[in-house]
């Protein structure tokens, strides 16, 4: 029987295996992992016992139901618009000459990073009541009322500003999977361009595009800054979103509001977990042939 390793030695081995990563792991546990646990506990725990009481109360409120429906709808709409515009754009950019591609990558990068309050204001300056485009159209003598800045339509237009670039940046690497000689081999086999896309191009890319759609959907539901900025000028008439509901309860009354915020946070958490797992599955599926 080998002699037992003394505790002290084992502790030192342990330290040498983990020590350099320990500070990061502490930070992550403190700022990311523990908060999730706290939220889940708060949502399912009332007066020291597990309970669904909060859920019934929060989900029973019309405003919260409204927020959940609007958020999901906005997520689906935004991700779909992004997919339709972003997929061809990503494909074409991936096949551009280096200099042209660099230009578009630069532009997309800037746009993708330009979110939050700054984007909300830019939207107001473009399509708000006194926005540039609004004024331009009116100067042409056309009667034009821009969509209310906090309406779903306005949110959609503002969100696309970062969603399309994000989607393109996300899917461009996948585009390189389609190889030039597949297209050549398809031509030699007498396939038309349409047949190539239908039988080879799209089947190969589809899981990647679906994964992109899913991420955009998830991120869109989680957007807060842009929505907060755009909701700013319309007070009570703003579109209700899950994130805004959370923010409002936090801003207004921390004591009574935490229950609602916790429940809505757990709703977002559930969406995030489901979409992350589906995302992994999709990518595994995408890689199946490669």
């Amino acid at each position: 029987m080998p002699p037992r390793t003394p505790l002290r030695v084992r502790a030192r081995q342990m330290a040498s295996r983990w020590a350099p990563a320990a500070p990061l792991m502490l930070l992550v546990s403190y700022c990311l992992i523990a908060p999730i646990i706290v939220l889940v506990l708060q949502a399912f725990w009332v007066n020291g016992a597990p309970s669904l009481e909060l859920w019934g109360r929060v989900l029973g409120q019309a405003s919260n139901q409204d927020a959940i429906v609007t958020s999901l709808g906005l997520g689906i709409a935004s991700a779909t618009v992004t997919l339709v515009i972003g997929s061809p754009a990503a494909w074409l950019i991936s096949r551009m000459f280096a200099s042209q591609r660099a230009f578009w990558m630069g532009l997309l990068n800037v746009a993708a990073n330009f979110g939050g309050i700054g984007l909300a204001f830019s939207y107001l300056a473009t399509l708000g009541v006194v926005g540039m485009v609004t004024l331009m159209i009116q100067a042409l003598g056309i009667h034009f009322d821009p969509p209310r800045s906090s309406s779903v339509a306005a949110l959609l237009m503002a969100y696309e500003y970062t969603n399309i670039p994000l989607f393109v940046l996300l899917t461009i690497p996948a585009m390189s999977i389609l190889r030039e000689d597949w297209w050549e081999a398809a031509q030699v086999a007498s396939a038309t361009r349409l047949q190539f896309w239908r039988r080879i191009g799209l089947p190969v890319l589809a899981p990647f595009l679906a994964a992109g759609w899913l991420l955009i959907f998830t991120w869109t539901i989680g957007i807060y800054g842009i929505a907060y900025g755009l909701a700013g000028q319309s007070g009570g008439t703003a579109a209700r979103l899950i994130t805004l509901q959370i923010g409002t309860t936090l801003q207004s009354d921390v004591i009574t509001g935490t229950g609602q915020a916790a429940v809505l946070s757990v709703v977002l958490l559930a969406i995030a977990v489901v979409s992350l797992l589906s995302y992994r599955r999709l990518l595994r599926r995408a890689m199946r042939w490669l």
Partner: peptide, 19 residues
């Protein structure tokens, strides 16, 4: 790393505030 990737910052912020 998947947490800030998928979970809205407002949720992380709220949880962190509580914790």
């Amino acid at each position: 790393a998947a947490i800030p990737f998928a979970l809205p910052y407002i949720v992380i912020a709220f949880g962190l505030l509580q914790f």
